[in-house]
Nucleic acid binder design. Structure first.
Lengths: 232, 232
DNA sequence: GGATTGTTTGTTGTCTACAGTGTACCGGTG
DNA sequence: CACCGGTACACTGTAGACAACAAACAATCC
């Protein structure tokens, strides 16, 4: 039995993923991409019909989306896409700065060679996307890069909260991230350097500036003041 | 119509709260109080029978408890009370320190007279509970006090994340909080002072020390090293 | 025409039933 | 005794039904 080719868990037949999870992913994507508009009423039976499932997995997915803040459940009235406010955006960006600054410092302390190598790969991919002018890839590469820094912190709770915040922030700054992507990758390079040197203070300083730049850029964009995005 | 005695929203008849919310509260309480043990299998039909409802509201409550980290859903196997680990506890306490330190600084900036008055009331209640030797009341007063500081920060996202973390932390330090409650209320008094003076740096310093004391005390308790709790 | 009331339609919240899967137990065989 | 296969039972995931409530619409009254 110990040498059985089927003994390893990795060869287990995967059980089908519950429908509720597919529904969750589908709805989340529609919300993030704004195909489901803020404030829009999400009618369970319609969603169920469109997605080809019964109402139950839809309800369960909505429950989870509600807990994560994407959807507001109003008992008796139904589910509505959460309407973000500017104040909320500012608060999210402030909290993001706090969490990612702390993560950067911890990443500098807890880094691994593999982690650094991966970070550099992600950086290369991001720069390539910028040079190719592939805006969607830039946005994605940016999110991947940040999440990897957070993971290098080796604090799972911090990573989890940062992921929550980051997803909600995407609502706000995806358009910003498209502008002047190159500059933000220069800041990313400085961050890699600080982490590689194990310089927690430098890592924190670079990340704090970087995330504050995002916050400032968001406000400039909302105020319609300019297109001089400083970075993400 | 403007002067109708029924015009004010506060006279509205309250719609019944959905069962799922009552189930959620009941289960959460059982988990926090450890009447439902870590790792325990939560069988939907049993819970439904015990709570006198059908399985649906139980499923919906479990969905929410899972998203919040209290319960692990394993598709096809069911729901299990989340098993906290020491590493997780440490990470939670570290993140709690980060969030609450930032909150304290913002509270010093954004404080209001009402907020301060309320904080002092909560402090009085906490000290009275300590002197009455009412341990459960002490634990509760402590959580109330911390949550109120976080609310004074005027950053709803921060408050929400801090609330999430605080609830999970309760699993770990409720026993600790019982010990030497008086000392932690002395630290709370210093915090009130710093906030009242609008001294954000002092507020941050006091809160950082306070929450780090908790973290240290937790480790000492787990190591069985002593009963010299430094505070919560 | 505007306000009020009654009716209809749509939706939510919950209950019940069914199908599929996992686990435990039992009997038979080597 | 150990192992295997079959069966029964427990549980999960989902679908469908029903009752209650919210909103929209139509009819009636002033």
């Amino acid at each position: 039995m110990p040498s059985s080719p089927l003994a390893k868990g990795s060869n287990r037949i995967q059980r089908p993923v519950p429908l509720r999870e597919g529904v969750y992913e589908a709805l989340l994507e529609l919300i993030i991409m704004r195909e489901l508009q803020p404030g829009q009423h999400l009618v369970e039976s319609e969603l169920a019909m469109q997605l080809g499932v019964s109402r139950q997995p839809v309800r369960e997915a909505l429950q989870r989306l509600s807990t994560e803040g994407w959807v507001d459940l109003r008992p008796g009235y139904g589910a509505f896409v959460h309407t973000p406010t500017e104040k909320e955006a500012d608060q999210l960006l402030a909290v993001r700065a706090l969490l990612e600054t702390e993560s950067a410092g911890l990443a500098a302390v807890n880094r691994t060679e593999e982690g650094l190598a991966r970070l550099r790969e992600l950086w290369d991919a991001g720069v390539a996307a910028v040079e190719a002018g592939d805006v969607d890839a830039v946005v994605l590469a940016n999110a991947d890069f940040h999440m990897h820094v957070v993971q290098l912190s080796d604090n799972a709770v911090l990573a989890e909260l940062a992921a929550q915040v980051d997803r909600r922030v995407r609502w706000y700054y995806a358009p910003v991230a498209r502008l002047r992507g190159r500059r933000s990758w220069e800041e990313h390079a400085k961050l890699i350097e600080a982490i590689a040197e194990g310089d927690a203070d430098a890592a924190r300083r670079v990340m704090r500036d970087h995330t504050e730049n995002t916050r400032r850029t968001y406000h400039e964009q909302v105020d319609g003041a300019g297109v001089e995005a400083a970075g993400v």
